[in-house]
Amino acid sequence: MKLLFSTLLFALTLTACQQESQYTKLSGNTMGTTYNLTFESNNVSVEELKGAVTQELETINQLMSTYIPDSEINKFNALTNDQCFAFSDATWLVLVAAKDIYHQTNGAFDITVGPLIQRWGFDAAEYNDKVPAEEEVIALKQSVGTEKLRFDYQGQCISKASPELTINLSAIAKGYAVDQIANIMEQFEITNYLVEIGGETKGHGVNLHGFPWRIAVEKPASGIHQQQLLIVALSNNSIATSGDYRNYFEVNGQRFSHTIDPATGYPITHNLTSVSVIHPSNMYADAYATAFSVMGYDRTQQFAQQHQLPIFLVKNEDDRLTTFANELFNKMIIDPSQSNGE
């Protein structure tokens, strides 16, 4: 009888502890977008955690933003000589990863492509006045190319092969920030959390209901403006999405994307319009998603197979949207009716 009572008492105590799990949400603005954190907050100083998160995001912004005049990146961009500019540990880590992905993707991911993106930054109404001539595109391409950045690994510094070269980390910095906030969660001994910055997301452990984190991925339905959601179970992993099948304009029947191919200097012409990729590092997921938007449908599938990456693709064929998920991604999709909580 004593043994039965003890067993029941232990079971009731365990159930009570499980029911007492508290999850807290924090949100704010950063990097020109928003961040949202959900985490198990038992025995955690939420204010202390919030302070650490805020400080980390401010630090990353000060290092990597092109909108802050005296950021570390802008100081490098302002150089007009071949000085080897020494970078902080954080920015250096991102730059080395960017160079790695540049070579992996044969230049599809390029942190120096900013001048071309800026030049093509117009809409259909402005096309006739602003479309660049071929000669201008060729000239701009001379100031583009990660291979023109000279990395000195011993000195942790970079010099320019051309003074016009500039760096823009917007396609990788948010992913890095997600990873850093996840690291802060771990430092606070939080094992169940979800970190999201501007749509780039990383999950660890389980949600309030004890299930892996549920992440919604937009899946187009029959019409161009219709959609439904895929639900992906995300535990100890991260996901990033790039592209928007509504983000284009047409002139004289020709469609122009706002994604620029660094190899040609022109907007992409293929029909891959959106890609989601899952990777343990959100920094890599973020950059891969951007690269795949440039590479197109077939090259992305080949790359994902070679590197064993779960991917979900949307392509537009004559205004008909179709989707593809490889086997690795399909394994992470769950039935929405079985979804429980976030």
Score class of each variant (00 low, 15 high):
46 V>W: 02
47 E>A: 13
48 E>G: 01
48 E>C: 02
48 E>S: 05
48 E>T: 02
49 L>C: 04
50 K>L: 03
50 K>C: 00
53 V>C: 11
53 V>A: 06
54 T>M: 00
54 T>V: 08
56 E>C: 14
57 L>T: 03
58 E>D: 15
72 E>S: 13
72 E>H: 03
73 I>S: 03
74 N>Y: 07
75 K>A: 07
77 N>T: 10
77 N>F: 03
80 T>G: 10
80 T>D: 08
80 T>N: 09
83 Q>M: 07
83 Q>V: 12
84 C>A: 11
85 F>K: 07
85 F>C: 04
87 F>N: 03
88 S>A: 14
89 D>P: 06
89 D>L: 07
91 T>S: 13
93 L>N: 14
96 V>I: 09
100 D>V: 02
101 I>D: 00
102 Y>V: 06
104 Q>W: 14
107 G>I: 06
112 T>E: 05
112 T>S: 07
115 P>F: 09
117 I>L: 13
119 R>Y: 11
120 W>A: 04
123 D>G: 15
126 E>C: 12
126 E>L: 14
127 Y>V: 09
127 Y>G: 04
134 E>A: 15
135 E>Q: 14
137 V>Q: 11
140 L>F: 02
141 K>V: 08
142 Q>W: 09
144 V>D: 00
146 T>A: 14
147 E>S: 13
150 R>D: 03
152 D>L: 06
158 I>A: 02
160 K>Y: 14
161 A>F: 06
162 S>M: 10
165 L>H: 09
166 T>R: 08
